[in-house]
Nucleic acid binder design. Structure first.
Lengths: 229, 229
DNA sequence: TTTAATTGGTGTTAGAATAACAATAACCAT
DNA sequence: ATGGTTATTGTTATTCTAACACCAATTAAA
């Protein structure tokens, strides 16, 4: 084998950390591997990148095959390329994370076959490959990102209450926030549309429903505004 | 060719954005390509990753071959993997940036052969491949990083003045900073060692020299401190 | 040796942002 | 009607930020 050929004895994959929020905790969608290596182990959904496929496209494909969803928030994190990270050869992987509204997730043939399941972060054991490390890195990135840009809304249903929003932030940042200060800060950004609707069917005072105003956010960014929680 | 084989008709490279600071402006070390494709064009230093080489190791190797330097600050940014980014085949690249003390750079055989040169950001034309995009992304990342962690010191000589430090920040962040406020903030962090030395050979009042206290920084981080300019 | 030129070094204050804190309102279930 | 539960709202002390100007130390030139 020539030296040049040896460079081409390698492949690359994408792995996608799919986050969801069930109202209480941040969750990640994992699959149980049906084939070697690491058969039976939980792992991040991922796949080899097709020769004529952009990296981003491959990540979108993995996401869509598993969840049926398109056009959701997706961000590349970084590459993981230790020589021995894949037992069958030299495979580096590009890690992505995506944020989906957990109620939009429906079981697709692919996710059924791979027995996909949402996992809370408290109960994640040893994953296949270097996926624990990848997951950690992506979670760290999400924690960072959620403070710098209004990506948290990607995890909430279109209509949400301020308490739900706060719980989301508390769950991601693993911290407690002061209710009054949180509301003051969020509302002062003028990025929420008050829908003049309230919750129904709750056994207590119903909360007002809000919607994220994406248009206004784009406009504000154009004017130099920076989101900051 | 089987489908599996086609996945292995690809390669990956690293490209390294090497930053330096000459006291006035932020600079980047580029090479002039001696071979096709893009022969004669300026490009980021990079290379294919060896089959038995970690990505980080490859990035360190590229840096060392060009500059002779080891153990300098190096950080992965992200992968670039558009299908058509390399005219000769499917090659994705992992972008890194590194921060070196510009005076430590000496011309190595590799850098001589590739006519490496420092470039200011005002005068960078069209680079080879997608290197303009990579450079932009890395610069953006550096701007972000420099505010969150004391990486700026990696670009300064071991002994520096507060004015030099301020000019570094102004150059990277492309903004002007108030002298008194900047000094107050930096000094209040207690991360600078006052060397009780002053500049020599300057035609004006000589400035005091300081050194970054890395040990104390590590200690503070352990106690929950976060650097923030 | 005086003077000019140049950069280094320092403190105050008004305004803004943050953090800490508790009482009343609205709804359902009993 | 009462109790249980969550929603909603404002004030204040403290901290951080931003704006701003003069004297000091040195070399170069007159």
């Amino acid at each position: 084998m020539s030296e040049v050929e040896s460079f081409f004895k390698s492949a690359f994959s994408v792995d996608n950390v799919i986050f969801g929020f069930d109202g209480g905790d941040l969750k990640v969608l994992l699959i149980q591997r049906g084939a070697a290596p690491y058969r039976g182990k939980w792992a991040l959904p991922g796949d080899l990148v097709y020769p004529n496929e952009d990296l981003d496209t491959a990540a979108e494909r993995v996401l869509e095959q598993l969840t049926g969803l398109r056009g959701v928030y997706l961000e590349q994190v970084q590459a993981f390329g230790a020589v021995d990270r894949h037992p069958l050869g030299r495979v580096i992987t590009i890690a992505y994370y995506s944020l989906i509204k957990i109620d939009d997730y429906t079981v697709t043939p692919a996710s059924f076959a791979q027995s996909a399941r949402w996992h809370g972060f408290a109960h994640i054991g040893e994953l296949a490959f270097d996926h624990n490390e990848i997951l950690e890195t992506c979670l760290k990135q999400l924690k960072h990102k959620v403070r710098m840009a209004p990506v948290g809304f990607e995890l909430l249903p279109p209509k949400f209450t301020l308490t739900e929003l706060q719980q989301l932030y508390e769950s991601i940042l693993e911290t407690e926030l002061d209710k009054r200060n949180f509301r003051k800060k969020i509302l002062s950004m003028n990025l929420l549309i008050d829908l003049n609707e309230v919750q129904e069917g709750v056994a207590h005072r119903p909360a007002k429903l809000y919607q994220f105003d994406r248009e206004k956010y784009e406009q504000f960014v154009g004017e130099g505004f920076t989101f900051d929680v």
